[in-house]
């Protein structure tokens, strides 16, 4: 790991100021993706700016028809949160399947969202639930946030503060995990908002995406058997050592069926 300067600001404004002043700095949250990246010298930031000293980023609160979760809330805390378990149980369940226990004790919602790993679990939840990402300067709809492979709409000096999750009528997440890493080979989040159906797929393509074909089918008939008609063209899906694109296309329907079953 290359050397860097370490900073521990106590406010978001201070973190933004540090980012502005140091063009090659990176934010450090739980570090469960960033530190492995640094150990492999895949990134060589001049400065690491730890968000750990900013207590206001650790809140979970219910605000009317949504749950607001701070960027520094760990996966374990989301998994165990009575508010999340009561209002969006699918999100609590999803958080309990991320990585392993040690990763969930350190890894954070904001870190996962900003990192935008194409096989991470949270992006599927944000996209399917129609969440909004609150930063130090604006609010970004999940539909506009995940722009590509490890790419987001965040500006270089922008800090994720919280994620606002609308409380759905019903929702469920099903994933087929890589046996060792626990990343999703395919993960599908199905959400019935009460007004429409939103379905997001992670792990299968270069970035998380919504599945219009399955959304259309489920809006007409929210039933497992209706998904017999579902299909995914494999052309733009990942094919690798673990699973071919055709296999991932097949898994999308299987995971969607499991998620719908869990909603009923």
């Amino acid at each position: 790991m290359k050397d860097f300067q370490f900073h521990r600001p106590s406010s978001v404004a201070e973190a933004v100021a540090l980012l502005k002043a140091r063009p090659d700095a990176k934010l450090l949250s739980g570090g469960q993706s960033l530190i492995p990246v640094l150990k492999l010298d895949l990134a060589e930031p001049s400065d690491l700016i730890s968000l750990a000293g900013i207590g206001e980023l650790r809140d979970i609160r219910v605000d009317g028809d949504r749950i607001v979760i701070g960027a520094l809330v760990t996966h374990d805390a989301v998994h165990r949160s009575p508010e999340v378990q009561q209002h969006i149980p699918a999100l609590a369940t999803l958080a309990g399947t991320i990585g392993d226990a040690q990763v969930r004790n350190r890894g954070t919602l904001g870190g996962s969202v900003a990192h935008a790993d194409p096989a991470a679990d949270y992006p599927a939840a944000l996209l399917a639930l129609g969440a909004t990402i609150a930063t130090d300067r604006r609010k970004i709809a999940a539909d506009d946030f995940f722009t590509g492979l490890f790419e987001t709409a965040l500006e270089r000096d922008e800090v994720v503060v919280a994620v606002h999750f609308p409380i759905p009528k019903r929702a469920a997440y099903a994933k087929f995990s890589h046996r060792a890493s626990k990343y999703a080979l395919v993960g599908v989040m199905v959400v019935d908002t009460g007004h429409n159906v939103r379905v997001a797929v992670t792990g299968a393509g270069p970035k998380v995406f919504r599945h219009a074909n399955i959304e259309g089918i489920l809006e007409r008939d929210f039933a497992v058997d209706a998904l017999a008609a579902a299909s995914t063209p494999p052309d733009e899906l990942n094919g690798d050592l673990e699973a071919s694109a055709e296999y991932r296309a097949h898994l999308i329907t299987v995971m969607a069926r499991r998620a719908v079953q869990a909603c009923l």
Partner: peptide, 25 residues
């Protein structure tokens, strides 16, 4: 590489991989 868990210690009572945390943290 943050996978095997042999380096697990408790930090404020929670199990973490000490190879995936900076000492300064």
């Amino acid at each position: 590489t943050s996978q095997c868990g042999a380096c697990t210690v408790h930090v404020d009572g929670r199990s973490v991989k000490s190879c995936t945390m900076l000492a300064v943290e």
